[in-house]
Design a protein around this nucleic acid. Structure first.
Lengths: 91, 91
DNA sequence: GTTTCTATATGCAAATATTGCATACCCAAT
DNA sequence: ATTGGGTATGCAATATTTGCATATAGAAAC
């Protein structure tokens, strides 16, 4: 399912126009992103937690040439599924 | 930031009551979950992709006792941040 | 319809997750 | 306001993931 299909579903479930459903959805993702930019984590009960994970610099490798490459430190967004979420898929 | 705080922010940004903001938010997460239950992945452009990853059974270890443990197969929800999302945090 | 984005596939080293469990803590709902 | 429950932490050893370059195919966005 892609974003467009999701918006259609939300439009129906929320009784909104597609444009409004998309605006609503974008507002939510942006709000979450803003919180994460503020170095905060976002915990959503029953769903999961988004947090920014710092990844250390390390040595990588160009798989084409085998040559070693220095990879700088970086940050990425992690999503940790809540317990309830795991249970849904393991029962 | 927890869910309650997120709802307050959304309530302001979407011009909805807190109750409506929460209902809206829950509808979205539920829609995503339903798609994932249907063994589908959910791609959200500019944000990321949720997908269900199957994990094989394997042998683990209780770090307290050192004892070997059989870990059953399971499934978990993975979130892969989109390219745009990585850039936000690495610039 | 055109252009941008994403998945894939490759080899491999290092970073990180996983696992049981107790405790402390924070949150959510009563 | 209380309490039940989910979550964070720390631990050790192993399993798994990550991410590098790059091209291409396919999908999605505008």
């Amino acid at each position: 399912m892609n974003k467009k299909q999701l918006i259609v579903k939300l439009s129906g479930a929320l009784n909104l126009s597609k444009a409004d459903a998309e605006r609503t959805f974008d507002t939510i993702t942006n709000t979450i992103l803003d919180a994460l930019k503020g170095d905060d984590s976002v915990k959503i009960a029953g769903f999961g937690t988004y947090k920014v994970a710092k990844r250390k610099a390390r040595v990588g490798r160009n798989p084409r040439t085998g040559e070693q490459i220095q990879i700088g430190a970086s940050q990425k967004v992690k999503f940790l599924p809540a317990k309830a979420l795991k249970e849904v898929f393991n029962k």
